[in-house]
Each structure stands twice: as C-alpha cells, then as structure tokens.
Amino acid sequence: MFNSVSALPGAFSAGAATVSEAGLVGMVTLKADLTDKKVAAAVFEVGGAKIPGQRCIEIAPAGAIAWMAPDEVLIVCSHADAPGVVADLDAKLTGTHHLAVNVSDARVVFDIQGPGAREILAKLAPVDLHPDSFQPGELRRTRIAQVAAAFWMTGDDAFRLVTFRSVAQYAFDVLAMSAKPGGEVRYF
C-alpha cells in the first residue's frame, strides 16, 4: 500500500503569524442550480450544512460548505470522504442537471494563524481585510500575489487559504515572506 500525499507535507514557517500546510483536505465542487430545493437538500444531507449565502461559508460537522459562485458550492470534507461525497451527490441528484467533481488533489490548503494573519494576507491580496470589513463566515475568492486563491477565517487571527496544488510552493513562499519578522505593519 502507498501513502497519499498533499502538495507540501509539513511545510511550516513562523513569523508574524505561522503558515502551515494543512495536509490532505477533501474538497468537492458542486455546480447546480443552488435555488433548487432538491439541490439544497442534497447539499445538506451530504455536506452537513445548508447552502451559504452569497460569498459566505457555513461550517459543517465534518467540514464546511462554501459559496463559490451563483451556481457553485465547494464542499469541504475529509480527504477520504470526498469520492463518497461525489457519489452521494450524484445519486441524490440523479435527473437534476449538476456537476459534482472531486477537486481535493487539485488544491493545497494553508493555515495562517497569529496576530499578524490579517496583515500577511493584506500584503498579498487586493482585499479590505480590516476587522470591520472581513469577519468569520465570509469567503473571499481573490488572488494572493500572482495566483488565484480563496480564504476564510477559522477564528480570531486565523485564516484558512486554498489555492492550486501546482503553485503550492509559490503560495507558501509568498506567505512565509510576508510573515517574516521585521515586516509587521501594525495597521489593523
């Protein structure tokens, strides 16, 4: 038997905040008519939470449901469960136009935690990260430096960021560089 591996196993850097790779995380993209009750029911039954409002994320017992676009949610779950989530959605949505696909391995997930977390992201993303403007419950799809990313808050001073697997090293490097001691902005 072999081990499945995430993009940057064990990657960690300490600074104004810690940046660490979260390991294998399950992620399923579901594209469908989100206003369809059948779709909402399937998401709730399979993902464990309701479909979030526009640009929001709902925390579920085994993960989260993130609103990605008017016709798309991302279901976050354990890595091992992802193929089952796809199969369950396909089963529950038979006859309903939808696309469920496992994207767990197309992604890398980083946790950014510490007092400088907001500032680190504000160095890289063209986003208003002021505490009055960005709070837990919101999901932001944007870019960090030169790559697409999405992030949300998992607690005070804690962010979870998802980007593409192929640019895991780049994303880690720009995050770690931004967190480097001496670069504290002390703005927020």
């Binding site: 526009q54 640009r55 676009a69 008017p70 063209p126 799809r141 944007t142 870019r143």
Partner: peptide
C-alpha cells in the same frame, strides 16, 4: 453583479 463583490481591476 453575480457575486455582489466590488472588485478591483487586478481581480478582473
């Protein structure tokens, strides 16, 4: 108008 976000040009 699709997601309600006011985005800056570099995101578009």
């Amino acid at each position: 108008p699709n997601c309600g976000l006011t985005a800056e040009e570099s995101e578009l």
